[in-house]
C-alpha cells in the first residue's frame, strides 16, 4: 500500500488525469442537464490531454523549440504536444456540434434538461397515437 502511494505521488499527473476522467464520466452519465453532460465530455477530454502531455514531459527539459541552443539542452518529447493539438481541435469540434444540438433542442422544448425533454416528447407521441386511434 505504501509503495503504491509512493508511486502514485511520483506519478501525480497521471493520478490527476484519472481523477478528472472519473469526474467527467460521472458528470456525463448522471447529470440530466445537457450543458453539464457537455462539460463532462470536456473534462474527460482534458484527462486525455494531461495523460499524453505528462507522458512526454522530462523533468528539467525545455520546450521543443530550437533556440540558439547549447548542445546539452534536454528537450521534452514533442510528439504528445502535436497529438494533443489535434485532440483539442477534435474536442472543439465536438463541443461546437453539441452546443448547436442543445440550441436546437432548447428552441423546440424550452429546456435543457434531458429528462424533461424525454417527458415532453413522450407526451407528444402519446397524444399523437390517441389522435390516430
Amino acid at each position: 500500500m505504501k509503495t503504491l502511494l509512493e508511486k502514485l505521488i511520483v506519478n501525480y499527473p497521471y493520478f490527476f488525469a484519472m481523477v478528472l476522467f472519473s469526474i467527467g464520466v460521472m458528470t456525463v452519465l448522471t447529470r440530466s442537464n445537457l450543458f453539464k453532460k457537455l462539460l463532462g465530455i470536456n473534462i474527460m477530454g482534458s484527462a486525455g490531454y494531461i495523460l499524453f502531455i505528462a507522458a512526454g514531459n522530462i523533468r528539467g527539459g525545455t520546450d521543443p523549440i530550437l533556440h540558439q541552443s547549447d548542445p546539452g539542452t534536454v528537450y521534452v518529447n514533442p510528439l504528445p504536444s502535436a497529438l494533443m493539438l489535434t485532440g483539442i481541435v477534435v474536442s472543439v469540434s465536438v463541443t461546437a456540434f453539441a452546443l448547436s444540438l442543445i440550441i436546437r433542442l432548447y428552441k423546440e422544448y424550452g429546456t435543457t434538461d434531458a429528462r424533461r425533454i424525454a417527458r415532453m416528447r413522450n407526451e407528444v407521441t402519446k397524444s399523437d397515437s390517441s389522435d390516430r386511434g
Binding site: 456525463v28 452519465l29 465530455i41 477530454g45 453539441a98 444540438l101 433542442l105 416528447r121
Partner: peptide, 13 residues
C-alpha cells in the same frame, strides 16, 4: 436532434 445529442455524448465518451 435529441437522438443525435445522446449519440454524440456517448460516442465522445
Amino acid at each position: 436532434a435529441e437522438a443525435a445529442f445522446t449519440y454524440l455524448v456517448l460516442a465522445t465518451l
